[in-house]
């Protein structure tokens, strides 16, 4: 696998994605209020906060599933008010979901191959014949998918329908499906929710490896503070849809507003 994002002129450390004054509400419910932060190329950026703080909504805004009422999002230097999911995906934003959102009736290979859809272009005619260019394309992408399968150590479950897999492996396949898109920005929504210690350790290792080997920028929502402190370069903290802190893990963990948000305020 080559490092994604080469040749776009954005170097490690530059701002890859900037969220500027974003507000999102559903009717009278304000999910996000005037939040600004940025994600730099090559970093692991954690988004934390208590339940209902607007973390998942933030991810949904970033990949175009929700359209914020106010604010701007700049990705790779291009500002846009509204981003459609298709555009986000084709520009290199991939994500995993809080509740596993795999294609349950399909095998592990087919799930990850589905992540390659945007990279496959052979036309309907050749697809009907499944010979010549269409088959060459299939094989070429299968090779890429096999590399991901090796990387995530899921060789044994290649052909198992994902609906039959245990939860931890499903999370791993979902990560594989996102990686198949060769994303520049990978959004992980609670990748370790409901996992035991070993599974968390495995998943942490994969996240760090993805970041190191492929230089993929990662935005991570996670409730396990230990994991967040160990993995992330910078942390943004949301509470009730507002940003209350932003900085290195050490700065954030000693921030009084964050401590208050998590532990409560003495009365």
């Amino acid at each position: 696998m080559r490092a994604p994002g080469d040749g776009h002129g954005i170097m490690a450390g530059d701002v890859l994605l900037a969220v500027d004054g974003v507000s999102l509400s559903f009717g009278g419910v304000k999910a996000i209020t005037d939040v600004s932060f940025d994600i730099r190329k090559g970093e692991i950026r954690a988004i934390i906060g208590p339940n209902g703080a607007g973390k998942t909504s933030m991810l949904n805004v970033i990949n175009g599933f929700y359209h914020p009422q106010k604010g701007r999002i700049t990705f790779k230097g291009e500002m846009r008010r509204r981003m459609r999911p298709y555009e986000a995906a084709s520009q290199g934003i991939a994500r995993t979901f809080q509740n596993v959102a795999l294609f349950k009736g399909m095998s592990t290979i087919d799930n990850i191959m589905a992540g390659r859809t945007l990279k496959m272009h052979e036309n309907f005619f050749w697809q009907c014949l499944r010979h010549g260019p269409a088959m060459r394309e299939e094989v070429e992408h299968r090779r890429f998918v096999e590399e991901i399968i090796d990387f995530l150590e899921i060789q044994a479950i290649r052909k198992t329908p994902v609906g039959k897999l245990p939860y931890g492996l499903q999370k791993r396949v979902e990560l594989g499906r996102a990686l198949a898109m060769e994303p520049e920005l990978l959004l992980l929504d609670e990748p370790m929710a409901g996992m035991n210690l070993e599974e968390k350790e495995d998943m942490s290792r994969f996240i760090v490896d993805v970041n190191n080997q492929y230089g993929t920028t990662i935005a991570l929502i996670e409730h396990d503070i230990g994991v967040v402190m160990d993995l992330s370069d910078r942390v943004v903290v949301l509470e009730y849809g507002r940003k209350i802190a932003d900085g290195s893990p050490a700065e954030v963990s000693s921030d009084q507003a964050v401590i208050d948000a998590y532990l409560g305020v003495p009365h």
Partner: peptide
């Protein structure tokens, strides 16, 4: 695969392009 992806989880399919 695109058809089955839409069948099994249309939101995920959409976010994958």
């Amino acid at each position: 695969r695109a058809w089955m992806a839409v069948r099994d989880m249309d939101i995920a399919a959409e976010l994958m392009g």
